[in-house]
Write a protein that binds this DNA or RNA. Structure first.
Length: 209
DNA sequence: CATGGGATTGACT
DNA sequence: GTCAATCCCATGC
């Protein structure tokens, strides 16, 4: 595991945390807490995307920001929120240096705080499906396109380091899902101890159960 | 300028 | 298992 600069238990992750290679950040975000409004959940699944590979929204020759991806090329530690399939909102943590298009897609959280509000936003869903997918996650925590560009370090939408007593995730690696290009890169990270992840499970997780 | 395709989900056969 | 919903942008004529 990469040495993570200046992370304090229970405190928001600092900008330096995000200003690192995006794959390292994706792995290290598993187990951290995503907070929005009165609700929060433990991050149990992430994927890394980088402008150098064709599955990224930032991929291009040369890579350039569009109206959609402007935030993705901006400074690290912000939220990049985009519309998926014209319907859903999905949220990334912007990584690496300002000017580089790189982000970690947050694919699933285990709801911990504000369960009543979360269940009200996801009527009829069993608890393990409340936020077990990138579109479900934003619905559950009330994250929308208006949160694009939000400061994850100091804003109302933020990511917090685990506390001393919080469970330590068992991170397993797999290939990213829902894409058709660069499908071989092992850039998906899942907490194998959690039931709140999206499918398909990585082989290492199936083997452990 | 017209068309096609997603970093998805949920309803339905 | 199949399929529609629906926005932004890339591609191609």
């Amino acid at each position: 595991m990469t040495t993570v600069p200046a992370v304090e238990a229970g405190r928001p992750l600092p900008v330096d945390f995000y200003a690192r290679p995006v794959v390292d950040v994706a792995r290290d975000l598993v187990g951290c807490l995503l907070v929005h409004g009165g609700t929060a959940g433990r991050i149990v699944e992430t994927e890394a995307y980088h402008e150098s590979e064709p599955a990224s929204h930032a991929f291009g020759t040369p890579p350039r920001p569009t109206s959609r991806t402007r935030t993705l090329f901006g400074p690290p530690g912000r939220a990049y929120v985009y519309r998926s399939y014209g319907i859903h909102a999905c949220v990334n943590a912007v990584c690496e240096a300002d000017g580089i298009g790189a982000g970690v897609l947050l694919r699933a959280v285990e709801p911990l705080v504000g369960l009543d509000a979360i269940r009200a936003r996801r009527p009829g869903r069993p608890d393990v499906e409340l936020a077990s997918g990138p579109g479900r996650l934003t619905l559950a925590l009330g994250i929308g396109l208006d949160d694009d560009g939000a400061d994850l370090v100091a804003g109302p939408l933020r990511i917090v380091a685990p506390g001393h007593g919080d469970p330590v995730p068992r991170v397993v690696t797999g290939t990213r899902v829902g894409i058709t290009k660069a499908t071989d890169l092992p850039w998906r990270f899942v907490d194998a101890t959690s039931a709140h992840v999206s499918r398909p499970w990585p082989p290492a997780m199936r083997a452990a159960r």
